[in-house]
Write a protein that binds this DNA or RNA. Structure first.
Length: 514
RNA sequence: GGCCCGUUCGUCUAGGGGUUAGGACGCCAGGUUUUCAUCCUGGUAAGGGGGGUUGGAUUCCCCUACGGGCUACCA
């Protein structure tokens, strides 16, 4: 399928930052569109003005951009089916709801929220459930129960009213084929007379969603599982309008790494991992919520991790670029059950991507983040540091935590335990001999240092452990790290000797204190 | 409570009526390495329970348990 009429949409509500589950939904939509040569649209569902959050729409776009998910059509991108912000589409909804009113598929309701609330509470007390539907609407204040004159009078008095969908009086089974789950059947009896238009004149999700998906010629609705129970309502709406319904695919949710429930916006920072793609600052409270970008994740790694959380290619591959995934993505390989998010796996993906990145990208990236911490690196040094450190870190910024790379270790930087275990009374003497040997090295290159070091040990009849580890300790303060010969070359002869002196005396002092 | 969806190693998953139930993460062990990592090799570990259907079920059906979702003039 190269040219097709596949059109899918990601339709977030600008009520706050998008969390990783939302990004996954966007990703699957995007991949599905790409796999079928279709279009991926971004629609903003901002029909609830009370929940509108400043900056949320920009956040969504920035997050998608960071991930590399490109929007073919929608807000900002534009397109012939606009506008793509529901708050700007009210004329469409008014027109649509008129159709339903005329055909008797919808009616006006005058009950106040308080009245309905009271009914719900009472029903609960009676161990019942109140549902606004065929069984109850006759006894409530609406255009189905009231006479035409009464209704007109209420409207005349500017009594607030809403529009409700009229579910069938006689229950019928609504069956549809979910592209992921197969046939799903739900009785119309369990869907209530949903509100289509609120008292403020704006549509609810259900109406806007159906009208827009139809109007924007959406072919496949790929959305979260939380919409599965209202899918029959949507089907009934399409029928009431006389429109062909799109195909549906409901994605399972992402669960918390531990414990129960779906991953929520609050799980992140408490659990030590982000739930948001990029950092979010709440405009009201000023609270910050961390993002994968700021944690140092490569966008490719973050996205690959999300991709594999609920989809697989049918074989053992698990590393995919967006382009590769777009070639093989299909809904029938989407897993039905919910997946628990694993921070460990996310880290692993980052390591994989970091290690396969070209130096041409890593060098400037390291120089930039080093600069933010006041560390000046030139290209040569950045390259060497990367070579030394890349396979020892999960995130690029972790390289900067090895402060000994950029300056002599301070007192508090020394690994006390290592010093206690590996620095013997005779060690300072070995270091002094080592210094003499190093000072006489004509070509201060790793290979040269290494071979001279080895013959030096032979000469003195010493082991690697007796000399090399203390050497590392003196220069870095740490018990582990990259090749000391390469590191020494990186420092240069002069700095190496300085650090050796400095470290030796520092450690000797520490030993006295112990 | 009602309705809907789901259930394979600790986690993500493959497969699918006959398999030593495969891979990945994690963890453990060994090897490589001056150390720490990387890398390599190996190991650990799984179809909730009960009924059917079948010559044979992890795979198909039912029940149950458990998990998740929905049940607003929110999306």
């Amino acid at each position: 399928m190269t040219t097709s009429n596949v059109r899918v949409r990601f339709a977030p509500s600008p009520t706050g930052p998008l969390h990783m589950g939302g990004v996954r939904t966007a990703l699957y939509n995007y991949l599905f569109a790409r796999a079928h040569g279709g279009k991926f649209l971004l629609r903003i569902e901002d029909t609830d003005q009370t929940r509108y959050v400043e900056g949320a729409e920009d956040y969504v776009r920035e997050a998608l951009t960071w991930c590399g998910i490109e929007i073919d059509e929608g807000v900002v991108a534009g397109g012939e089916f606009g506008p793509y912000r529901q708050s700007e589409r009210n004329a469409f909804y008014r027109e649509a709801v008129e159709l339903l009113l005329v055909s008797g598929h919808a009616y006006l309701a005058f009950d106040t929220p308080e009245e309905l609330d009271a009914l719900r509470k009472q029903a609960e007390l009676d161990k019942n459930v109140f549902q606004y539907d065929a069984s109850s609407r006759g006894g409530l204040k609406n255009s189905m129960s009231l006479s035409e004159e009464e209704v007109e009078a209420l409207i005349e008095n500017e009594t607030p009213y809403i529009v409700r969908f009229k579910t069938p009086d006689i229950a019928e089974d609504i069956t549809f084929t979910d592209e992921i789950r197969g046939n799903v059947t739900i009785s119309s009896a369990v869907v209530d007379d949903k509100v289509l238009v609120k008292a403020d004149g704006l549509p609810t999700y259900h109406l806007a969603n159906v009208v827009d998906d139809y109007g924007m010629e959406i072919s496949h609705v790929i959305r979260g599982e939380e919409w599965l129970p209202s899918a029959p309502l949507h089907i009934m709406l399409y029928r009431a309008f006389g429109w062909d319904a799109p195909k549906f695919a409901h994605l399972s949710l992402i669960l918390k790494p531990t414990g129960n429930g779906k991953l929520s916006k609050r799980d992140g920072d408490a659990g030590g991992f982000p739930v948001f793609p990029i950092e979010w600052k709440d405009p009201k409270t000023g609270n910050m919520a961390s993002g994968y970008r700021e944690h140092g994740y490569e966008p490719e790694a973050f996205l690959n991790m999300l991709l594999m959380l609920g989809w697989n290619p049918g074989d053992d591959r698990e590393m995919f670029t967006l382009e590769e995934a777009a070639k093989v993505f299909s809904l029938d390989k989407v897993v039905k059950s919910s997946a628990r998010f694993s921070p460990d796996k996310a880290r692993w993906f980052n390591e994989q991507y970091l290690r396969q990145k070209p130096m041409a990208e890593l060098v400037p990236a390291l120089i930039e983040i080093a600069g933010l911490q006041g560390i000046t690196l030139d290209e040569r040094d950045a390259g060497v540091v990367l070579k030394l450190m890349l396979e020892r870190v999960t995130f690029l910024h972790e390289i900067l935590e090895a402060k000994w790379l950029f300056g002599a270790p301070k007192h508090e930087d020394f690994d006390e335990k290592m010093v206690r275990k590996k620095w013997k009374p005779e060690t300072a003497g070995y270091m002094s001999d080592l210094k003499t040997m190093l000072a006489s090295t004509t070509l201060f290159k790793a290979d040269e240092i290494e071979s001279r070091f080895k013959s030096h040990l032979e000469e003195k009849d010493l082991s690697f452990g007796q000399v090399l580890l203390p050497f590392r300790l003196a220069l870095t303060g740490a018990g582990g790290g990259p090749s000391m010969f390469e590191f020494a070359e990186f420092l240069g002869l002069e700095t190496t000797l300085e650090r050796l002196d400095f470290g030796t005396s520092m450690i000797e002092k520490m030993k006295e204190e112990q």
